[in-house]
Design a protein around this nucleic acid. Structure first.
Lengths: 219, 219
DNA sequence: GTTCAATTTTAGATTACCCTAAAAGTCTAT
DNA sequence: ATAGACTTTTAGGGTAATCTAAAATTGAAC
């Protein structure tokens, strides 16, 4: 059985592999989970003996098939718990992540399957991120970043790329929640800010920081 | 912050203190959590430096005020999670304990308070054990063991003293669930078995093992 | 009150995880 | 192609938790 620490390494390696599209460097892992590079080397060797990662000295780390399966299961657990916390216990999308970080380590596959069913088998978490099914398949969705849209385009907010608390709270304040309908009124090239019509009512200008991190499903 | 291991020791010491009505011996703790006595000595010393237990060499262990508070909070968490597992996810009363053993270690007092409210502030867990409120107060209830009742007495099943899976499954099979109404028809002294009328319908004879472990609220 | 059995503690080791400092390896720029 | 910068690994150690085996203590019986 895996320790919570091992599971956190697996998640970190998965995240880096996905984000960078290549093997995870020792330093990248160390930075992500806030440990010394030497500790990462230790752990990665251990995970390699368990056939969870592929590792060659100084060549970076990738997940094996089994490692990928474990990472996907952890993401599944995390996101399902997030849905529970927000929908049933009234946590906000900026609060749920931290508690889910703990809950995702509960060892019981049956539990997460029952919880999923109890929640109505949601396909996306409170941030709009897809929840893998028990076989590890993600529901894909046609989506673009706001800054890829043109004037006149319409869409619905379906997700966020950045998950920081300040960003999420900013979106709450502007009523840019998941499900909000938007129309791109004007693109300002000089600072890449965007003027929107929100839910057919409010006009709103958002910065490039926002438009680079908001996923929209065009309609 | 306490480790899961430390929390498990606290719970064990609390349980023994309650059950025996006196300080917990090294051996008793070791037996309960399945470790070597030497490990217990080590851990108890550590907990003593944190002012969680009172410890003098070879004199047994008791919880300090703070230790008692922590133990009660753990019991609260455990029992609230049990209610969640049984009522919302359909686990049975013999299955829920093990998963709750893990969930009780999630560190977030707000979480357990929200979960309690979500569940309708239950006062008893699926085994009929009282759930302490956030201040640590248990709801008391007038109850007797079945073997303390006399012929002709009536009551309702409100709890179990033994929590083993075989016992709970036996009770399920006999329909002796929490809330079942019983009347004591006959007491057989020779083997201390008891003949009951169950829910005003079925006649049933149960062994002394059962009558010593079933809590009844007389009516 | 001494002896013997049971309990408890100490001693010494192991494993998982973490660290710092130094050595080794890799990459880039000239 | 080599110097210098950066990355990674090794070496050596620390802490929390565990164990077994041996020593010390406690307490019960005679």
């Amino acid at each position: 059985m895996l320790s919570q620490t091992e599971e956190n390494y697996i998640k970190a390696i998965f995240k880096i592999n996905e984000r960078e599209g290549k093997s995870a460097s020792t330093n990248a892992i160390a930075a992500l989970i806030n440990t010394a590079a030497a500790s990462v080397t230790d752990m990665v060797k251990r995970l390699a003996t368990k056939d969870i990662v592929n590792y060659e000295k100084s060549k970076g780390v990738t997940l094996t098939t089994e490692g990928g399966r474990l990472a996907t299961l952890l993401i599944r657990k995390h996101r399902i718990w997030e849905v529970f916390l927000c929908e049933k216990l009234g946590y906000t999308w900026d609060e749920c992540h931290e508690i889910a970080e703990e809950l995702e380590h509960i060892k019981d596959d049956e539990l997460i399957n029952r919880l999923e069913k109890y929640l109505g088998s949601p396909k996306f978490d409170p941030h709009g991120d897809p929840i893998p099914d028990s076989a590890g398949n993600f529901t894909l969705r046609a989506q673009v970043l706001l800054n890829e849209m043109r004037e006149g385009d319409c869409g619905v907010v379906v997700g966020v790329q950045e998950h920081s608390t300040p960003f999420l709270q900013y979106l709450d304040r502007q009523m840019l929640n998941l499900g909000a309908r938007i129309e791109v009124l004007e693109l300002f090239e000089f600072d890449e800010s965007v003027k929107l019509k929100l839910n057919g009512e409010t006009d709103l200008i958002v910065s490039s920081r926002v438009s680079q991190n908001l996923f929209i499903k065009k309609i």
